[in-house]
Design a protein around this nucleic acid. Structure first.
Length: 386
DNA sequence: TCTGGGGTCCTAGGACCC
DNA sequence: TCTGGGGTCCTAGGACCC
């Protein structure tokens, strides 16, 4: 019998802050932005703050209204990533097959580990206790015969919970579940469920595969059909195809000045190329994203024959896309850019060396120096452009 | 109360090739 | 002359996740 644990840290960012700052413990804590920060949203609210109705993705301005005496922090991703590494290292003690889903959650394939840790439920308890004593954080755990059920189960008894779905009970568990708990059915789908009067998965279970695909489309219809039967969804299969990297910036106030928008785009462009070099990847496909003041969002992408070679090269490509899309006179709320279809570069001889190899070499040098001397903060800067 | 940032996957239509 | 059908790549937009 296969067994999977889904391990999910409780209110992760807020818990790390409460761990590092004892004076925050037991108090409503909101990580995401300070009161008065325009256009910021809540990343994580401590359980004390959730009592006031504050939750993730809520605008900070709204959180302040609900919880005016809360403690507000912008957050420290570097610290959270560091803490995440500690946790993931402990997960690795329990299973050779750990699939990290995000900074604060992972699947552990514990099939056949009874000999080392005892029965799965005993192992789940040990894991929770171990995480608590070694990192000071609490974990919620779902245990089931497939990843999808384990994932939903871990959310059932938060915080600090263990939820075990026994082999054979998967379908029973799913059919009784409120549709709001279906992982993969977000706001739009919930609206559709409501419109159709679907309250629990039982209401979806009654529909045929044909009915589901005609309502929800081929892939999502099949996903729902299988999910309500407690069958392992393909959603969590290890093999993931394409990769991408992106960066974006929301301005505190809409920008109308084209040069200011382009400057932000340049800075995004710089950060992308540093990452690209750092991760030793390459890409031929670049994209931009523009969100206007009315929240209408447009994007454009272009695939070229040759991979991006330098900051200037990327900036040229992005600027061309930007001017293709940009409607001047409309306030710009957000500008973003990215690279998709990332590939591992194939080592190539001189014959195929990039045209602006000099620049790319210079940028690699700057990256090295910045890594060696983090305070140097060497940049090329837009003014450098000829 | 206006709605972050970094990702993945799906859909539908068009281009192009055989 | 009255336009098949499948495969692949590309593009824009949307849904969803943490």
């Amino acid at each position: 019998m296969a067994y999977f644990i889904h391990a999910d840290l409780d209110a992760f960012y807020a818990s790390v802050e409460q761990l590092d700052h004892p004076e925050y413990r037991g108090k409503p804590l909101i990580v995401g932005g300070l009161p008065g920060d325009r256009r910021s949203v809540v990343s994580t609210a401590s359980y004390e703050a959730r009592k006031f109705g504050v939750h993730s993705a809520m605008p900070v301005a709204q959180a302040v209204k609900l919880c005016p005496h809360g403690i507000y922090l912008r957050g420290n991703m570097e610290r959270y990533r560091q803490k995440s590494l500690e946790v993931m290292a402990i997960f690795a003690d329990y299973s050779p097959v750990v699939q990290q889903l995000s900074v604060d959650e992972a699947f552990l394939d514990i099939t056949g580990m009874e000999g080392l840790f005892g029965p799965p439920d005993v192992m789940a308890k040990k894991l929770k206790e171990d995480i608590r004593s070694r990192t000071g954080l609490t974990l919620s755990v779902g245990l089931a015969s497939n990843k999808y059920i384990a994932k939903i189960a871990s959310g059932m008894l938060k915080p600090d919970g263990i939820c075990i779905i026994k082999p054979g009970d998967e379908e029973k568990f799913m059919r009784a579940l409120p549709v709001g708990k279906i992982w993969g059915a977000g706001a739009k789908t919930q609206e559709e469920f409501k419109k159709r009067g679907f309250k629990t998965c039982e209401d979806i279970y009654r529909l045929s595969l044909e009915q589901l695909t005609s309502i929800f489309g081929k892939a999502f219809g099949l996903f729902l059909y299988r999910a309500v039967r407690g069958e392992a969804a393909a959603a969590f299969d290890e093999e993931r195809g394409s990769h991408s990297m992106s960066a974006e910036r929301t301005f505190p106030y809409d920008l109308y000045d084209e040069f200011a928008i382009e400057t932000a785009l340049f800075e995004i462009c710089e950060s992308l190329v540093w990452r690209l070099l750092d991760e030793k990847q390459q890409s031929r496909t670049v994209f931009i994203k523009i969100r206007y003041g009315d929240f209408i969002t447009e994007s454009a992408q272009e695939t070229s024959a040759n991979p991006v070679t330098s900051i200037n090269d990327l900036f040229d490509r992005l600027l061309a896309l930007f001017h293709k899309k940009y409607k001047s006179g409309m306030g710009v709320r957000l500008i973003g850019a990215g690279l998709s279809n990332l590939e591992d570069p194939v080592p190539q001889g001189d014959l195929f060396a990039p045209a602006d190899e000099k620049e790319s070499t210079l940028e690699k040098k700057i990256l090295e120096i910045n890594k060696k001397y983090p305070n140097a903060a060497l940049k090329k800067g837009r003014s450098w452009l000829g």
